[in-house]
Each structure stands twice: as C-alpha cells, then as structure tokens.
C-alpha cells in the first residue's frame, strides 16, 4: 500500500547529486508529496534559478519511485516560497560539516569592500581564523574559503535569504 509516508521514506535515499550526503529533504528542496487525481505529485523547488542539478534530482526522484513500483507519479517545480538556507535541516547542516563543507551562517554576508565579513569556521579544524577567497565557488550555492590555521581550502554553503 503506497502512502505519503512510504514515499517520503523512499525519497530519503534520493540525494543532491553534487552534495551526496544531503537528501532532498535535508536540503529543503523537497516541498510536498500529495495525491491528486489518481497521481502522486512530488513538489520540489530550486536552490538557485540556474541550478543544473534540478533536472537530475527530478530524474532521480522518478527513478527511485518507479523502481519501487510507484509509476503514477510526476514531479512539479515551484518557485514560491523561494528556497533559502533556512530550509536546510539541522541534521543536514551537521552532515555538511562532516563532509567538509561549512554550513551556512545565520547572516547573509553584507560586508562591502574592506568591512568585516561573516566569520565562517573551518569545517576541518574549527578555527575561526579563515578568509573568503571568492563569493562564488564550485557550484551556485557555495563560496570559496580558506582556513588560515590549518591552511585547508574549503567550500562554504553560503547563506541565502
């Protein structure tokens, strides 16, 4: 018997293709699962408008459900309410740090040139002596940082509000 709960359990195993430790619900991309007109509708929202991982996520959701015998399913993309880093789950933030990516701090980095930037502790050694190398990193959702204590370069999942 297919239920919303059984679908949510299956979707726990569908991960962000670029950050494979995060499930779609950890990431906050999975918005809703509902049954409408004899069909399961999985609602997802993009992190960034041009995120190239969205299509992969959609395909992965369909593949996972179909492999488990759920075929009357489609994926719907919604833009509003817009995704922010507040949608990341607390367990997701812990998984990010363990994976070597600094989780979002609570504030958007508003610093203008030469003003104090947001402190982003190093995910490896925990040092607060770090610097931003670039506001734009390996994917749309990340910035590039470096630890000044252990010298490790790392990604920061930047705050979006």
């Amino acid at each position: 018997m297919v239920s919303k709960e059984s679908i949510l359990t299956l979707l726990e195993e569908v991960c962000d293709p670029e950050i494979p430790v995060l499930s779609l619900s950890d990431l906050g991309v999975l918005r809703d699962v509902s049954f409408r007109n004899e069909e399961w509708v999985i609602t997802i929202t993009p992190t960034y408008s041009g995120c190239p991982a969205m299509k992969t996520m959609e395909d992965d959701v369909l593949a996972k459900l179909k492999a488990n015998g759920i075929t009357n399913v489609r994926v719907e993309l919604v833009l509003s309410p817009a995704w922010t880093t507040d949608w990341l789950s607390e367990s997701g933030k812990i998984k990010l740090r363990e994976f070597g990516i600094a989780p979002p701090e609570h504030e958007v980095d508003k610093s203008v040139l030469f003003a104090a930037p947001t402190i982003v502790p190093c995910p490896k050694c925990g040092s607060r002596e770090t610097k931003m190398v670039s506001q734009f990193g390996s994917t749309a959702c990340k910035a590039h940082y470096q630890c000044l204590s252990c010298l490790e370069p790392y990604d920061y999942f930047k705050c979006l509000k």
Partner: peptide, 28 residues
C-alpha cells in the same frame, strides 16, 4: 501577478550577490 512575483522573489536573492560582487570590483 503571482508567477512574476515568484520569479522575482527567487531572482532577487541571487541578484543581491551579483550587485555586491560588481560594486566591490568597480570600487577596487
């Protein structure tokens, strides 16, 4: 218009990062 508002809400968050980046470069 709900859809135009939704697209703007999404895009605005990205645009803030762009403007910050380019303002800094113009000053630099």
């Amino acid at each position: 218009d709900a859809q135009l508002s939704a697209i703007a809400e999404k895009s605005l968050k990205e645009t803030r990062y762009h403007l910050k980046h380019t303002s800094e470069w113009i000053i630099r």
